[in-house]
Nucleic acid binder design. Structure first.
Lengths: 221, 221, 221, 221
DNA sequence: AATGAATGAGTTTTCATTCAT
DNA sequence: TATGAATGAAAACTCATTCAT
């Protein structure tokens, strides 16, 4: 699991007076606590203790619990969107580009399970915090264009037969990558099998790519 | 939204002394509150008030907040699994059976958004409550067989080309039906479009069936 | 320990309609619960459940929790005072009579530890319940006379040298018999030895008789 | 009654920010409330109000009601054991030392009736709290030695004729000093006389010393 | 920039007691 | 005589937040 806090970051010489380092520790601790318990279930006490700083600093830097939560969310969204842009998908042929995109999406969820948890929780709050951040919409216009580009290039080259809306497709990709992780505990329980093993995850990854690519390549009915 | 409480049920003559009716009202109110706020965010005060009964009755009948939550979850699971069995899928040709199953799954999520919310929240709690209910595993063995039956009949008749594990397939179906609703608020926000309109939902439904059926009908690579 | 409830009493044929039997069961259960937890700590639910009767019956027969407590106390006092009268102390020579009385007092506390506990608790309530029962004072006038009789007979025969007030002496006897049991848990803990074993109790009994008799037989300073 | 809280302590200049002073007030208030009502009957609201501090501080400093109770108990035990050590009994001839010890024990109970009440209540809870405090056993090993010293010195000088176990003797001393106070309400009621007046207490004190010293000085039977 | 002390409003839960049958 | 359902008041405890330094 990549939900590790980067506690390993070296504590700067006089960390007592390094606000950025302090903020970072708070954000890391908050991310883990919010992902684990949700906004309502999370405790500011726990976050401060885990970050090793005084509770009041949390208020000093982030205003209140919700402010901290918003910041954590924004960072998590930025992380995945930045990761996607780094893939340089426009430099690959459409089929490969799309495959890479799906695989990245799946792998990101595996490596950032806290993101999965946070999104689920944010929906419980009707996206109240996400709505306040104007920057997020911009991020996603770019994503929409990236996916649209792959699709039209694929259609032009004849490899993709489907004329599908980029957002519609993205939601399907996200669905298949997200649900498996967001609901792993209930799935493991009701089907009486562990879905979190490395093998299971690898098999799932192949299956997800399979479904989506076979759809894009197939003729509409 | 189909999250309506069946408050409309006629209040029996002597409702004051009808424990089943009282329990039912509590469960309805609890389902809505838990779905809306999650276990941590839900308030027993609100539940009792909404049910129109004394708060203590909640403890009298369900022990504590967690006990009530467990009962709500169990009922919600039973509801969908019962609905599936009522479809009589074994009496339809495999292709039609599978389509009906996917459509039912999608429609159930639309009509029971509280189920979507509850499952998400239960995963925050690592399926703690679901794990306690032994009955649930039995329910799902049956589901696995139902899906397995459709798949093997489809393979035999040559209509399905894929040799896929029933649970693996079910997770894909659930993913595509679930995520759209569980994450509707963040999706609507980041893509700046309303995903909850009737038209959008209808289009999505077609898309989901399309993806899954085209996968089953397509040849393995 | 004799704190056993006489559950063993045969349940009468139609116990459903035997008020005396029901009351008895309630009193037994109440005695144990009050002795174990005190008035504040005791639970009417527990008492009713332990008695195997409906909680409302408790209110029907005893009015309220305090009423039941008062009744239990009265019974316990009556038990020891009756026991003392049965000793027929006036028919023994004073020294033997007094020894028998002390031994009975000690043994009664051993056999009725609930009495010890109840008295301690009642003092927490400033004897509120005992004060309401007029009968108790009568019982104790008789006790005072019994002790007074032994003392004057002993003085007359020259065996007792002390001119001691009967109540003063009784309090000393009770002190030595009571405290050992009322405080057995703290004593065992702070002195790191078990004071509840049969041997320890037997040794203590001898010691108590020794102290008191040597006092009565000794010359005033 | 000597159960006075030392509310009279001067409130320090900036008492608002003096945690030790705050803790002290809470402990004083708690001691009185627990002694008066017992653990179950005591109310944290009352304690906080009486201490004049916010209720939450009680939890902040002592964890919960039981934690506060444990602390009160520990302090009360420490108080009496410290008082005993201050008597410097080893510097007096054995007879005088023992008399002083008995008198101190009696006087301490008179002056710290809350200690009497607390111990009684703690026994209701089977010494649950005392058991958790390791320090207490150490305190009592020392007490045992102190008593043992007086006894052997008395035996050597021929003034004490009895070969009695120090703990056995201590229990007798405690019995005679404790019971009179712990059960004063029921005693006053059943014997229809006030046992709490200054005269009665003084007479009782003499009687207790008399009993114990005459025992130690008397020849074994 | 950082801290420990303090707070008020709220949360779950408990409990003796009463109601309706 | 007996019962299960229902209640109101109060209990312990929690929690985000602010104060004083």
């Amino acid at each position: 699991m990549a939900t590790m806090v980067n506690n390993s970051q070296k504590r700067p010489a006089n960390s007592q007076r390094d606000p950025e380092w302090t903020k970072g520790r708070l954000l890391d601790a908050a991310r883990d606590e919010f992902a684990d318990k949700g906004l309502s279930g999370a405790r500011v006490n726990t976050i401060a203790a885990e970050a090793g700083v005084n509770k009041q600093l949390l208020y000093y830097y982030f205003g209140d619990k919700d402010g901290l939560y918003s910041e954590v969310l924004k960072r998590s969204y930025a992380e995945i969107r930045t990761g996607e842009q780094k893939l340089k998908l426009e430099s690959f042929p459409p089929e490969e580009a799309m495959t890479r995109f799906i695989e990245f999406s799946f792998d990101h969820m595996v490596a950032h399970q806290h993101f999965v948890a946070l999104l689920g929780d944010e929906n419980t709050h009707k996206a109240r915090h996400v709505k306040q951040s104007g920057q997020l919409i911009g991020m996603h216009e770019r994503l929409e264009k990236t996916i649209g580009g792959m699709l039209s290039r694929g259609r032009e080259s004849g490899i993709f037969k489907r004329d599908v809306d980029p957002v519609e497709l993205y939601i399907s990709i996200a669905s298949l990558c997200f649900f498996y992780h967001s609901n792993k505990h209930t799935l493991s329980t009701i089907f009486d099998r562990d879905v979190t093993g490395d093998e299971e995850i690898a098999r799932r990854r192949t299956h997800v790519v399979d479904i989506l690519m076979s759809y894009l390549r197939s003729d509409p009915v």
